[in-house]
Design a protein around this nucleic acid. Sequence first.
RNA 1: GGGCCCAUAGCUUAGGUUGGCUGGAGCACCCGGCUGAUAACCGGGAGGUCGUCGGUUCAAAUCCGACUGGGCCCA
Length: 988
Amino acid sequence: MAVDEPESAAPSGAGVQRRVLDYWESHGVPTRGLDGPPDGPVFRFSEGPPGANGVPHMGHLVSRVIKDVQLRYRRMRGHRIVSSKGGWDCHGLPVEIAIERRHGFQSRKEIEAYGVERFCEECRAATLEYAAVWQEMSRRVGYWLDYDHPYRTMDPTYIESVWWSLKALYDRGLLEKGHYVLPYCPRCETSLSSHEVAQGYREATDPSVTIRFPITGPGIGRRSLLVWTTTPWTLPANLLVAARADLEYSVVRTAEGEELVLASDAVPRYFPDGVAEVERMRGTAFEGLSYEPPFATPGPGPGRYRVVLDGFVTSTEGTGFVHIAPSFGPDDDRIGTREKVGVFDPLDDRGVFGDHLTLVRGKSFKGADPILIRDLEDRGRLFRSETIRHTYPFCWRCDHALLYRAIDSWFVRTSRFTDGLVRNNAEVAWIPEYLRDGRFGNFLTEAKDWALSRSRYWGTPLPIWECPDGHVTCVGGFAELAERVEGGLASPFDPHRVPVDRLKVRCRSCGAPARREPYTIDVWYESGAAPFAQFHYPFEPGPFDPQRPLDYVAEGLDQTRGWFYTMHVLATALFERPAFTACLVNGMLLDESGRKMSKSKGNAVEPLDLLDRVGGDAARWAFLAIDFTEPMRVSEAIVAKSAARTIGTLRNVVAFHLGNARADRLPPPSGRPSAAGLLDRWILSRLEGTRAAVDEALGRFDPRPAATAVRELVDDLSTWYVRRSRPRFWSDDDPADRRAAHDTLAYVLLGIARVIAPLVPFTAEWIHQEVGDHGYTSADASVHASGWPGSLGLRDPALEDGMRELRALAEVGRELRQRAGVKSRIPLAEMVLFGDASPAVAAMGPDGDRLLADELNVKRLVRVPASERSHYPDPGWVVREDDSVPRAALPRRPTEALLEEGLAREVARRLQQRRKELGLRLTDQVRVAIGAEGALYRALDARRSALAKELLAEPFELLEHALPDGEDVVAWELDGVTFSARVSRRAT
RNA sequence: GGGCCCAUAGCUUAGGUUGGCUGGAGCACCCGGCUGAUAACCGGGAGGUCGUCGGUUCAAAUCCGACUGGGCCCA
């Protein structure tokens, strides 16, 4: 028999990936498969657009895997994917900051001096700087998206859809201008929305100072209120002090005779050693008292520097007196407005003090802290100065400390439709489920108005114009804009700044020239608009249906306050429905030792490197096999190990099969094998059970149970089906059974390929091509074009039960062998089983018993009543008893004949090993000479022809003495007997 | 200060919603086996106060409460 191919060893995961990628790309497999069948039922999906002016990290890899699993499953299920477009989030600070750095700009003034138009052009050019890296990552992890026709938030069509939606909100009264105290980044010189702030809380050390506020009114005497703050820089803007009406306050006298006022609860904290209490009173007693401000500043006029009452004051922190600077805090603003004291803001847009206070002129807000504290101390106003570690918000993009600041802003009035947000959220299937009522749900019930406008440049301009009479014109599209512009719009029209600001727009109400509100909008609004804006809705016909939510989205946990939230808000406000019906959320990534992964710590695993070394499927499998909804540890070792267990074993089984199939030149089976035998029926039943389990799990969007089911099947296939079937694959005694085993294994592997295709597409494709003998030759023959399989076998739960019990008995038998000290290779006469077989085992009949006997290498199984335990006494038998109930027994020794048989097997094995060492193929003919003595000679002599046949040995010489030493003679020792042999290849 | 989640063998974890037989696996470790998958495969062993304390119960890893530690989010 001639063999023209080398034995196939299992290739590495990376090797499989290279082979498959090469096939996919040379035959356009992904391109053809992207959208699924054009006439299939629609599966609505949207890629969450990443910003591509930075490189992707591991977290992006995880969500890509999870998204792709579902998309592949739906395609195989015959769905049309709407849409498979890739997407890019183009606007915003990340890009602007990159350009600022390039030029060394520190402020908006410098940008404007440089020229906004030029600046924006550079932003545009830098926007997709790393898109190629993102695409490469997607390619290597097998994430199929249409990157040739992506949606981009900077495209005019996209912007026009965003404008349309803003106009819709405006017309419903949900988009308004307001004056609010907002988180503000002095470096970026713009306000941030609450969900942006949420990204940037961090531990920080700040001053914690307590200041004397001397009372100046009549009738109280020389007393000072104690006021606590962690933001000394706000003290120059102080206009009021707040106390709480029903809180109890104490006047204490210090050893120096000074009288100080603070909440009674706070006294022990400030005077742990005790202090003389002079008087107690309620907060109402302080209402209207005047005090000397910490810094003399030319703030707004009458009514300032007095004590007011407010319920927000507590005594758990601080002194029960709160300093109020209306420009710098939401509560401050509220109280200041109520008390009509106006606003005083000594800071400019960059957070730098102006001329109001020469002491700190030109200092940034935080930089002024030490100077102000020292000055207070010099003037005897400082009572106590410490530092505190607390969480403080920083800019999520540039990392600069934020401050709260009163500014004008446009708002989406989210707070007006929280009912709708909550109602729609109730319809969403979140995975993990607790997010619905937990983190996301909580966030919705307390949803604040969304500060939408940004005083920036590279973004979607706010399409709102105002005329000198204060009429507002909100424009919802380019055609509408053209009607209001003298001479119409340029073609093509670029809606970005500066072109849009050059337009001479006439007021909708009075026709007067109007000026655009000089803002861009929050980039999160733009990505939240992705479901409709990517189709240029409503300006072009397309597949977007305003009544239908997306069927599925998946991203990381951070997007609960990001993309998931903004999509949900827009869907609720614009279409009065949820944005999506199923949302899969993965947890954050930790490094090997459980620390949060971050670039700054240097413990981040680079996704491209990882994919390069272990292959895309290893990464996919690792993420699917662990609970990705929890924080998960990731390292190359963890990924590789996780994948080796299931994907590696599967590759080995495939290699084993291919070796047999090629040796026998057997083609893949054309249909489901008839499967008469026990093992074959069993593995087909297991395959069908796994197919159903994967189908069910992916049908409800959760890949985790699918991965578990696959792992169990691969285990069963490798450790029982293949293990027990091995002799069948090369037995000449029963060609029909040999064929059945081959066909069944091939069929099962092909079935597995289709079932795992959504999970590990590279391995699935490799199996499909190799086992199915498709030769990587056409896109139609891809496993990903094969459709989701219907039934792959007949389920037989009773057989699966029986097999489980049988395998448990095999474990008992192996334990007994071990205790008896008889190797599996040496046959034993019988295994005794006490009691009747269980119905499930009995149903398997004699074939079941033979399977067990073969596994344990015993000649027969004997079933006896448990009462006959005494027939198997210890000297001759090892017995397994559970709770004094006998289960099974094995003889302690083989018979002489069986021992000889075992020895012969051992010789055969060693010679096979020798063949292999010589690099021979399974089918190579050899010459063999063996020298052996005594019992071993007799054992071999009796089996001459069988051995010769097994070893493909011709001639086969057996000598009754050791072979003379020679280079090619190898000697072994076997249970104290030596034998020697010479194996050499015979020329063909 | 509030919310959500987590805590099971050296490591990674199943189980927990429906309390109930000796809490399962995998990796690593020790011992053994197998050998036409071989950097593969199989078996056995050792290793667990199921974070701590308390409660409910005939019975708690599982339900309840408090606490401790970790992660995330909010203020």
